[in-house]
Computed example of a mutant assay.
Amino acid sequence: MVFVGPCKGPVLFQIIGNMKAVDDPSAYAEDFWMSFEDVDGLTVCGTGTIDGQGQNMWPYNNCGKSGGTCSPSLKFSNVSYGTISNITLSNGKGFHMGFYLCNNIRVENVTILSPWDSPNTDGIHISRSVNVTVDSSDIGVGDDCVSIGPGSVNVSVSNVQCGPGHGISIGSLGKYPDEEDVIGITVQNCTINGTQNGIRVKTWPGSPAGSATGILFENIAMINVSNPVMIDQEYCPSRTCNITKPSRVKLKDIEVKNVTGTYNGDAPTPPVTLLCSTHQPCENINLIDIDLRPTAGDGDARPRGLFQIKGFFNGLQVVPSIASSQ
């Protein structure tokens, strides 16, 4: 279904009741189910559910591999001044909601649900978009609750309940040449529960040059998260990358402030992991008031200590009010 302009709003699109996608992915000629394109002034709301029926596709999901796509259930392309609220999305074949080349977007009070083992089912993906706000939403999926990709500028994520899933991520960055920079990302007042990762910045090894600057993670509650705080400039989910070729994505001015709660003590890495590039030093990284403790009964299999640090840094600051498992 394609709803295409150019249209000058206000345009109101209401979803009431349950919408179910065809469960056969071969029935789709495009890499999405529903798409809104070239609309200025769009509201999508209602009490309904958008069910992507992705169960048949998950065992064969090749999102991002060999030309495979992430098949968002709800795609917004070149939409300005849009509001998406109160709807529920579930069981995406790939991403549940994606924003591309959009500006001045607000997402609020949405619910996104897929099983923890559903691959590449990011809740909300943002790319090459400006002034996007995600607020007061409940997201539990099989991948990132919110993923913020290249070209994202002035993005705010707040009051999100995330879990299960892979946490809230900036990236991955540096996979393709000529990616646009990421500037001004704020993640505040979120709870991340039972996820693989918490808050994360991820870039590919051997990447082209790029940058991500002006990032704030603040007031984040962790509940039994395996990797609560992570900068990963050796990101390679397929494990086939040559990590001796350093990432050339510059990470600068990142502040992680008031992160509290518990981590999974049986995870193989410490709760704060900073893997920076050996080519482009991480610059001005500030960790302030981090209090993370192992979940009761865990911890015997984890190397003791709070940090794993690797790569080059310029201006790493760790305020000493940090708790460890020792």
Score class of each variant (00 low, 15 high):
residue 169 S to I: 03
residue 166 H to R: 13
residue 147 S to C: 05
residue 146 V to H: 01
residue 97 M to W: 04
residue 82 G to L: 08
residue 76 F to G: 02
residue 62 N to W: 07
residue 160 V to T: 04
residue 152 S to P: 03
residue 62 N to V: 13
residue 101 L to K: 13
residue 79 V to H: 01
residue 158 S to K: 13
residue 104 N to Y: 15
residue 127 S to G: 07
residue 73 S to Y: 07
residue 162 C to F: 04
residue 141 V to N: 11
residue 127 S to C: 05
residue 73 S to T: 14
residue 96 H to E: 05
residue 167 G to R: 05
residue 146 V to M: 01
residue 90 S to G: 00
residue 75 K to D: 05
residue 137 S to I: 06
residue 64 G to R: 08
residue 82 G to H: 11
residue 70 C to Y: 12
residue 104 N to P: 12
residue 111 T to N: 10
residue 151 G to C: 06
residue 123 G to Q: 03
residue 83 T to Q: 12
residue 74 L to Y: 02
residue 137 S to D: 07
residue 94 G to I: 09
residue 176 Y to Q: 15
residue 103 N to D: 15
residue 73 S to G: 04
residue 105 I to M: 13
residue 121 T to F: 04
residue 96 H to K: 05
residue 166 H to P: 00
residue 157 V to L: 02
residue 162 C to W: 03
residue 120 N to R: 10
residue 92 G to Q: 08
residue 70 C to E: 13
residue 65 K to I: 14
residue 109 N to P: 00
residue 171 G to P: 07
residue 152 S to Q: 09
residue 89 L to C: 11
residue 167 G to A: 03
residue 74 L to C: 08
residue 152 S to K: 09
residue 83 T to K: 15
residue 127 S to I: 09
residue 82 G to M: 11
residue 163 G to Y: 07
residue 76 F to I: 01
residue 94 G to L: 11
residue 62 N to C: 13
residue 74 L to P: 00
residue 110 V to L: 14
residue 147 S to K: 07
residue 71 S to W: 06
residue 77 S to T: 12
residue 160 V to I: 15
residue 64 G to D: 08
residue 68 G to N: 14
residue 172 S to N: 08
residue 135 D to P: 02
residue 90 S to M: 09
residue 164 P to I: 10
residue 101 L to A: 11
residue 110 V to H: 08
residue 149 G to F: 06
residue 108 E to Q: 14
residue 124 I to S: 02
residue 84 I to P: 06
residue 91 N to P: 00
residue 167 G to T: 05
residue 113 L to S: 06
residue 96 H to C: 08
residue 160 V to E: 01
residue 67 G to Q: 14
residue 154 N to Q: 12
residue 116 W to S: 15
residue 118 S to Y: 10
residue 166 H to F: 05
residue 94 G to V: 09
residue 75 K to T: 02
residue 151 G to K: 06
residue 129 S to F: 03
residue 134 V to D: 00
residue 126 I to F: 01
residue 148 I to V: 06
residue 109 N to E: 06
residue 75 K to P: 00
residue 64 G to C: 10
residue 107 V to S: 04
residue 72 P to H: 02
residue 77 S to I: 08
residue 85 S to M: 10
residue 155 V to F: 04
residue 175 K to P: 00
residue 163 G to E: 09
residue 105 I to T: 09
residue 148 I to W: 03
residue 80 S to T: 13
residue 155 V to N: 01
residue 84 I to N: 04
residue 121 T to C: 12
residue 87 I to A: 02
residue 126 I to S: 03
residue 92 G to E: 10
residue 168 I to S: 05
residue 134 V to S: 02
residue 79 V to E: 00
residue 73 S to P: 00
residue 79 V to R: 03
residue 98 G to L: 08
residue 99 F to Q: 01
residue 79 V to D: 00
residue 150 P to W: 07
residue 96 H to G: 06
residue 144 D to T: 04
residue 103 N to E: 15
residue 83 T to Y: 10
residue 131 N to W: 13
residue 156 S to L: 15
residue 103 N to F: 09
residue 137 S to C: 05
residue 112 I to D: 08
residue 161 Q to Y: 14
